[in-house]
Amino acid sequence: MIFTLVLPGITAIDSADTDTLISRIADGDKQALAKLYDTTRSAVYGFSLSITKNEADAEDVLQETYIKVWNNAAAYTSKGNPMSWILTVTKNLSLMKLREHKRTDDLAEDEWAKLSREDSTVNEDERQLLHEVLSILGDEERQIVMLHAVAGIKHREIAQLTEIPLSTVLSKYNRALKKLRNHLEGADTQ
């Protein structure tokens, strides 16, 4: 008989720790901001990327999110859910980016793939993979996957954050994961 231990695949970001960090940030502690940035930046970037579908925009949003957190930390009242607060900031900034583009020029879907940045610090294979997996998902699927798999946000909170009904969040997540597994398995055997 084979025993398999199911290990947690998602490491959720600890709410109490994050609350404490935000308190310290409100107090003007830059070390705390750096720590918060370190533990949450991929969640913020991933979520923004899933909305903006544009690396340059997501990078701007990443930067602006932490500046907003710095400026508004004092106004944050702990509800035990600091990640939702941070990601709401990210969502609003990302939607603003979308609106900016809408006003100037619609960003075509395929621009998404073309917007390659010359950045030696980013692993090109991982970038390629990320683009592939994100392009096979629908808009909502992409956001839900980023929030759950990368940011470790619970489905119930995702429903609140994205204003998508919980049952839809779950079925879309399931669908999206199925697509991703199929894609990743295909990519592995190539």
Binding site: R41, Y45, G46, T121, V122, L177
Partner: peptide, 23 residues
């Protein structure tokens, strides 16, 4: 699902630019 999730997570982590200095 868990493996797929951690694969995506790894890719996002690898692709997230470092903007801390600018922040």
């Amino acid at each position: 699902n868990k493996e797929a999730e951690s694969r995506i997570k790894k890719a996002v982590e690898a692709c997230t630019p470092d903007v801390l200095d600018r922040v």
